[in-house]
Nucleic acid binder design. Structure first.
Lengths: 349, 349
DNA sequence: CCCGGATCTGACAACGTTGTCCAGGCTCTA
DNA sequence: TAGAGCCTGGACAACGTTGTCAGATCCGGG
């Protein structure tokens, strides 16, 4: 197909398909442009009769206001961005739901996407949202350097980090008390007589993982129990390797009688290993999950309130936008130990 | 505070906080506006030296292109909307994740929200997304009348319905084979010797619920088993009432030896009832869920591939946008029976 | 009958970007 | 060294909306 040399700037008339504009509505209703705008936005100063004519034209043409133009003119988009780690992770469902509810209450829409735990993708996504001029950003960080957001912060984009703190910049963040929660969970096992307790968690470069490890160490130290290296498995995430790590600490020279699983993925895998294991082994997991109570035995967990994380973050974000908030703060929400059986098994073997 | 009588149209200089524009960048770099645009968009025709100067000014000012203005000019937003029923429902996690991946592959962002199963809210949300001029819409319907979308369809907004069909309009939809799946599940129970089989499902006004009921009836009819009313519970969703319904069919005059649970919420509740019940009762559930294999016995389910639903829908949407697709179609994806034990229990009592 | 005021309406500019098109400077060849 | 042609850069309009402001209309009262 030969390339057209001079295509007119104005496409025939099918931009956005061929949506009618206020101008079209005005022409059809026989009124001025601004009058249509007034009707659409419910501004006062329009006779009922005029309003009726305009409304009629709107319905007839199927007019819908173009919010891009509106945003351009007004400067506020009434939308906030949410950068998740993984949309499909059940832990984030209630969180994003909570963010959405708060946004809705403030008349804002939610735009979101997942970083898939990739720092570059997190940055790409966050900046794309800023280019859309979202009013604010809720970020669950994948990376640990967020200086790329500095111009945005300076430009007034409200920003709150959730679940993990921001890196290299001073910003609001809302976290769970990871260290305290892990400490409670491990102390619970110690309270039931365990001394050889295993820990399986993610890489310590991830803030939550590091904090939970600290909690484990603190609880052990409080009880005066020296920790053996063979009891700890760090940075192992895929099910197969978690399985192997669990089996090693169960059968090693100094076998553990209890396991602390530092996140829900690990917990589920460990449950599978323990189910196939002859000797009963106690288990406490970080993060609650559905049906934990129906397993045999029920799984004792340190639960974080992911909905509260989302709600708190979103509320802070809108308070930043109101201007009622100035100094960045770090908020830690408490966790809750839920006993269901697996954490109360006595030591054996 | 007294209202300012005449506020100048031009706010001092803090719209969007006070973001620099291309004009500012151009001034600082000592070049024309369009040259900046060229650099930002990687268009050819700029000397390396000029490009460097411009890039420097961009970095120094922290400039970020305003996509609202861009959208206004170009007519495409490179974003699609997703109207979910509930962000927090684990069934929709993989689905929205799949939609996101496809969108990402096409360079589009995803804007989403939940209808909370409320038709009015679904409409409000869908139209808000259209006002943003999303290029397309993936909708999991809450209501059954979608004529409100007609002007949008006419205007060229690509639209695909998922999980449930569109009501009163002719549009693409991607569904699971609900009837066939339910039929397979119930036939499986019959194959293991059951004749008195209970059905617990949602209100038949919901398409999926109605289809699954049809599947149940069809399987029973195929086997020549007359269905008793007492075996069916319809429109019951909250856990307490599901619990009661289940108990009634287990203890009634003609007690069932097996239960078909028509969605994952119901399944989980029924599991709880059966766990507390003396006589073993077989169970097949519609929808798979995590840990179903770890329960005692493992739960046999009719699984739908929610990721495939999302992927298929999103791909169709982008094919609509390409123009490679014209006539709306109704696509049904197969379900898969996963046997884990609970569905293979023999009749007892 | 005219005027003041209140009410309603519309012309116009501006938001920040991109497409078009032309001007000027440069290189290369004859 | 002049001329042709290419390359780079910039002026300008337009996208659809809303804020400002002035003009038009209508009413009642003096």
């Amino acid at each position: 197909m030969p390339e057209t040399i001079r295509r007119p700037d104005r496409l025939p008339e099918n931009r956005y398909g061929n949506r009618p504009t206020m101008k079209d509505v005005a022409a059809r209703a026989g009124v001025g442009l601004k009058t249509v705008s007034r009707v659409v936005n419910g501004e006062p100063g329009v006779t009922p009769e005029t309003e009726r004519r305009v409304q009629e034209a709107i319905d007839a043409l199927g007019f819908r206001r173009n919010d891009s133009a509106r945003v351009l003119r007004k400067g506020r988009t009434a939308s906030i961005g949410l950068v998740l780690e993984d949309l499909a992770d059940p832990f984030y469902g209630p969180l994003s739901r909570a963010v959405e509810e708060v946004a809705r209450a403030h008349g804002a829409l939610l735009i979101n996407g997942s970083s898939a735990e990739d720092p570059d993708r997190e940055q790409e996504l966050a900046l794309a949202l800023c280019a859309r001029r979202v009013d604010g950003l809720v970020v669950i960080p994948a990376g640990d350097d967020h200086r790329y957001l500095e111009p945005e912060l300076k430009a007034g984009v409200a920003t709150v980090f959730v679940d993990r703190p921001a890196g290299q910049i001073d910003a609001d963040c809302v976290l769970s008390d990871n260290r305290g929660g892990a400490r409670d969970g491990v102390a619970h096992l110690i309270g039931h007589g365990h001394r050889r307790i295993g820990f399986i968690g993610d890489m310590p470069r991830i803030h939550t993982a590091a904090e939970r490890l600290r909690g484990y160490r603190a609880a052990m130290e409080d009880a005066g129990i020296p920790v053996e290296d063979a009891w700890m498995s760090l940075g192992v995430t895929d099910p197969e390797r978690v399985r192997r790590a669990a089996e090693e600490m169960l059968t090693g020279p100094s076998p553990v009688t209890a396991v602390f699983a530092a996140n829900n993925r690990v917990t589920v895998t460990v449950i599978r290993v323990l189910a196939a294991h002859a000797r009963p082994v106690a288990l406490v997991g970080f993060d609650d999950f559905e049906l934990a109570d129906l397993l045999q035995p029920g799984v004792t967990v340190v639960a974080q309130d992911s909905a509260a994380l989302g709600r708190t973050a979103a509320e802070r974000l809108f308070r930043q936008l109101d201007g009622t908030l100035v100094a960045p703060e770090r908020i830690e929400l408490p966790t809750r130990l839920i006993t269901r059986g697996s954490g109360e098994l006595p030591p054996s073997g």
